[in-house]
């Protein structure tokens, strides 16, 4: 699963930066679709929910989503792994 911030909903309040236990959300500098400064994600793969939601069959932590006053945070399925597209770097 992948953690995403909806550009159209986020109003840049940075509440997520306060509540994420892993410190994944960082104050951003780039304006989103509506001009608010959207937080950025720092190594989102550390998110428990990203890694383990499917495994447990239920939502874990979820502090960011419950707190987000603008219903802008969610998890989406990642693209399936496509071996033929892997570019091997030497």
């Amino acid at each position: 699963m992948k953690l995403v911030i909806n550009d159209h909903r986020c109003k840049g309040c940075n509440m997520c930066t306060k509540v994420c236990p892993y410190g994944i959300f960082q104050e951003g500098a780039r304006p989103g679709a509506r001009g608010y400064i959207i937080p950025v994600l720092d190594h989102p793969e550390r998110c428990t929910n990203c890694r383990l939601q499917k495994f447990y069959g239920r939502q874990l932590c979820g502090m960011c989503q419950t707190t987000c006053p603008d219903q802008a945070i969610s998890w989406i399925d990642e693209q399936p792994f496509e071996p033929h597209k892997v570019v091997i770097e030497y």
Binding site: C13, N14, Q65, T66, T67, C68, P69, D70, Q71
Partner: peptide, 18 residues
């Protein structure tokens, strides 16, 4: 109806979530 009319940082959205 989303996004809602609340100001940036308003806690009402959080209470709605809960």
């Amino acid at each position: 109806r989303l996004p809602h009319i609340y100001c940036a940082g308003c806690g009402n959205g959080t209470v709605l979530n809960c």
